[in-house]
Simulated assay, not measured.
Amino acid sequence: MDSLGSLNAFVQAAEARSFTVAGRQLGVSSSAIGKAVARLEERLGVRLFHRSTRTITLTSEGALFLERCRRIFCEIEAAELELAQSQGAPRGRLRVSLPLAGMLMMPTLSAFMRAYPEVELDLDFTDRLVDVIDEGFDGVVRAGEVSDSRLMSRVLGTFRLLLVGSPDYLARRGVPRRPDDLKAHACLHHRYATNGKLERWPLRRGRKDVDLPTGAVANTIEPLIYMAEQGLGIACLPDFAIRRQLAEGTLATVLDDHVDHEGTFRMLWPSSRHLSPKLRVFVDFLAQNLFPA
């Protein structure tokens, strides 16, 4: 058991790149983590980390050992999962990364928490491209294609981008009939938090891009929804984020025949890990409730 404790201290330190963070995660001091790793290095006869006053990095031997340790803990987790499945309800901590737009999924996430109270959600909202394995996530929700062979994936659903404005704004400024008409409107733009570029509005190809004016810019979706509802301009927004507004009539779509877009949300998780009961029910719940047919 002492060996497993040392291995766990090593894995946590390696994934966090910090004895302090590893200690916080395991509820012990950073010095206790350092001593456990030192005992492990002494027993193995190799150096696992390069240490400096500010950072720790894996040696080549440490990187190889980390992969082996991950397999060991995966097998232990698999054994525990088999027992957990026989005991009934999914339980435990589930660490998931979601895009910033995932804040708009909160009604679905809240419904999941009510349905599975023994699953503890640890949610990280960011548009940064996280490393699912190295950063220790159970899974991530992302839009777009998957190119990482280390990951398994499941499609949660599809969404479309729509151009919308409030009925009051469209009554005052007129309903655009052609993309060029947008030049006379206040356009509310989304700026990507990762690269600072404005998101391109998906007007149909085969024609010159329209040089859209800028009424306002925001790097998250929620302010754009609010500004559009307040009659401050036309915004390009994902349909799942404005279902209620469209149903209640506080927003109306424009230029539907000129907009060409379909995106896909996927759940990704490490292929080396078993799909645990808590992750399986989470994926199923999002697929069934986030994008209902």
Rank of each mutant, 00 (worst) to 15 (best):
A143M: 12
E82R: 12
G144R: 13
E82Q: 05
E145W: 02
L64S: 15
L64W: 06
R71I: 06
V130Q: 03
L104M: 08
T59Q: 02
E120D: 08
R68K: 14
E135S: 12
L64Y: 05
L109I: 05
G92L: 10
L100T: 09
A79K: 06
Q87L: 10
S149Y: 15
F137N: 04
R114I: 03
S110V: 07
R128F: 07
A78E: 14
V119C: 07
L66E: 00
D138A: 09
F125D: 07
T126H: 04
L81I: 15
R128M: 11
E118D: 11
A101G: 07
L121I: 01
L64R: 13
P99Q: 02
V141H: 02
I72S: 07
R142D: 01
L121A: 08
V140N: 02
L94K: 10
D138H: 15
H50Q: 12
R114C: 03
A111S: 09
T57M: 09
V132P: 07
I56P: 00
D148T: 07
M103L: 13
G136I: 08
T59N: 10
S110I: 00
E82F: 12
S97H: 03
V96G: 09
S52Q: 06
S147G: 12
S147L: 14
M152W: 14
S86N: 13
R93G: 10
F65W: 01
L83R: 11
R54Y: 13
G139F: 09
L104T: 05
L121D: 05
I76W: 04
C69P: 03
Q87G: 10
L100S: 07
S52I: 06
H50G: 00
V130I: 11
T57W: 12
D134I: 05
T108A: 09
R71Y: 06
G144I: 10
R150Y: 10
V141S: 03
E135K: 09
A63H: 10
M103K: 11
F112E: 01
E120G: 00
D134F: 12
